[in-house]
Each structure stands twice: as structure tokens, then as C-alpha cells.
């Protein structure tokens, strides 16, 4: 009876386990192994020890790419702060508030193919962004922002921010709405001002969600690729070249799968390091 039950349970799980086994768990194991081999898909992988990592040490493009990926983490605190602010802004009963929430969410459901093309136009030399900057007196001679090596990475970061705010807003909104109002009211009665209530009551209660959100956005910042693939292709002058771009071009343009996998391992370690840092800074998402 017990065995039968177990078999039925695994029967239900079978499709999920098979698919995840092939497309999620196997890549972790085989990808790690590949990092220590030379592989070209046609002949079987040949074990080469640390050779790929030694090659990586000399690849300046890999290191500048990794550095750009790490710089991309700058997006994380900005996106979280703005999302919390927007969530608090839309967390009130006002006529039409649902419409605003929807408007803020539309970038989230758009493909990066669409978003990348649109922002490519926005950043054009005579596009809307430069019109605003010029009107505000911030630039005199507009240039295409994506063609400026000093600014391109920040321009792409802004698009990540623009597309991500709605997503985190919804998560924070759910968090804010699950906070018991009586905590905040008690603090107000005790004479705290609104800012103190936010800083000492609301924010600590949001900590579990802040952990999830900053973890997710850190992981995707290090993996940033799609927006760069569509908008700049790593240029100009390698200024938006990221770690994942290196992995992508090593594998699918140079067909050096072993070296690409080795680079993937290095990025994975960096990613883990920043995830742990995240845990530390949000105190593991504990409320008190």
C-alpha cells in the first residue's frame, strides 16, 4: 500500500522530474564538467584540467565583461528603492489608481526584443530622451546615448530599471498590504512622524520581501544579457560587454564550449558570492 502510494506520487512528478532533470539539473553537472574539457560538440569532451581557466586569465575581454556585470549590480539598490517608493505611492485608495498600476506594469510584460528596439529609438541623437535632456539644459550637442562609451552602460541600466520597476512594485505592494496597519498606527499615536514610521516600522516588516527582490535582481544583474544583445551588442568599444556576452560569443561564435563553460563557472561563483552578501545585508530576511 505504502509502496503503491509512493509510485503514484512519483507518477505525478514524472514529467516535471524528467524535464527538470534534462534542462535544469543536468546542465549544472555537465556544465561544470565541460569547464574542465575541450569540447566542440562533434568529438567527445577531452579533459584538459585547468587549461580553460588559465586561458581565461589572459582574456582581457572576459575580465572587462565580468567587471561590467558587477558594475551592473548598481541597478539593484536603485530599482529596489524606486520600487518601494512607487509601491507606497500606489498603495492608497484613489480613483483611477488601478489604471496607474496597470500602466506601470506594461513594460514588465513586454519582450526585451520590443523594449530594446523602442529604447534604441528613444536614445537616438534626435530622439525624445535627448529632447528632454536638451530642454532641461543638460546637454548642448545631443549624441546617440548608446554610441557613447562613457554613457552606454548607464543608458542600458536605465532600461533595465524602467522594465523592472513594475515587477518589484507588485511584490512590494503585496508586502505592504500584508502588513498589519495597527503597528504603524501605534507608532503614529506614540508621536513618531511619517518618516520614522517608514524607517522603523514599515521597512523592517518588509525585510523578507526586500531579501527576495534584491536577491532576484542581483542574480539577474550579473546575468544581464538580453537588453545588451538587442540594444548595443556589447559596444561601443566594449563598454557594454558583459560576462554573459563573453560566454555567449565564446560558445556560439567561436564554438569553444569548454572555455565558455569555464567562464560560466567563474560567473556562477561571483553570483553566489553576491547572493550571500545579499543575505547578510538583509539579515537573512528576518523581521527583527
Amino acid at each position: 500500500m505504502k509502496l503503491r502510494n509512493t509510485l503514484i506520487a512519483y507518477g505525478f512528478l514524472l514529467p516535471a522530474l524528467v524535464l527538470m532533470g534534462i534542462y535544469t539539473f543536468f546542465p549544472i553537472v555537465f556544465g561544470t564538467y565541460l569547464g574542465f574539457t575541450e569540447y566542440n560538440v562533434i568529438t567527445p569532451p577531452r579533459f584538459v584540467g585547468l587549461e580553460n581557466f588559465r586561458t581565461l586569465l589572459g582574456e582581457s575581454y572576459f575580465w572587462s565583461g565580468l567587471w561590467n556585470s558587477i558594475r551592473y549590480i548598481l541597478v539593484v539598490p536603485v530599482i529596489q528603492l524606486v520600487s518601494i517608493a512607487v509601491a507606497m505611492l500606489v498603495n492608497r485608495q484613489l480613483p483611477g489608481i488601478g489604471g496607474f498600476r496597470t500602466a506601470y506594469y506594461i513594460p514588465v510584460v513586454s519582450s526585451f526584443a520590443v523594449v530594446g528596439l523602442m529604447w534604441g529609438w528613444m536614445y537616438d541623437q534626435f530622439g525624445p530622451v535627448n529632447f528632454v535632456l536638451k530642454t532641461l539644459g543638460l546637454v548642448k550637442n545631443p549624441t546617440n546615448l548608446l554610441l557613447n562609451p562613457a554613457l552606454a552602460l548607464y543608458a542600458v541600466m536605465f532600461v533595465t530599471l524602467w522594465k523592472g520597476i513594475g515587477y518589484y512594485m507588485v511584490l512590494y505592494l503585496a508586502g505592504l498590504q500584508s502588513i498589519d496597519r495597527s503597528y504603524e498606527e501605534a507608532a503614529l499615536i506614540d508621536g513618531a512622524n511619517r518618516w520614522q514610521v517608514f524607517w522603523n516600522v514599515t521597512l523592517p516588516l518588509l525585510r523578507p520581501i526586500i531579501l527576495i527582490c534584491s536577491l532576484l535582481s542581483t542574480i539577474s544583474a550579473i546575468k544581464v544579457f538580453e537588453e545588451i544583445f538587442v540594444m548595443t551588442g556589447g559596444g561601443p568599444a566594449g563598454s557594454t560587454y558583459t560576462a554573459l556576452y563573453f560566454i555567449y560569443s565564446k560558445a556560439f561564435q567561436d564554438f569553444k564550449y569548454g572555455e565558455a563553460a569555464a567562464a560560466g563557472l567563474v560567473v556562477a561563483v561571483v553570483s553566489l558570492f553576491f547572493s550571500i552578501l545579499n543575505f547578510k545585508y538583509t539579515r537573512g530576511g528576518q523581521i527583527s
Binding site: M20, I22, Y23, T24, F25, F26, P27, I28, F30, G31, T32, L34, G35, V41, L215, L216, I219, I222, K223, A243, L244, I247, Y248, A251, F252, Y257, A260, A261, A263, G264, L265, V267, A268, V269, S271, L272, S275
Partner: peptide, 16 residues
């Protein structure tokens, strides 16, 4: 799998 980094996933899935 939500947190585990899997940067080489794309490559292995392509090979698969």
C-alpha cells in the same frame, strides 16, 4: 533552481 547560478545552462541546453 531559483537561486542556484547556472550560467552554462544555455550552452548545455544547446548541446542537448
Amino acid at each position: 533552481t531559483l537561486i542556484l547560478p547556472n550560467e552554462a545552462g544555455l550552452i548545455v541546453n544547446y548541446i542537448t
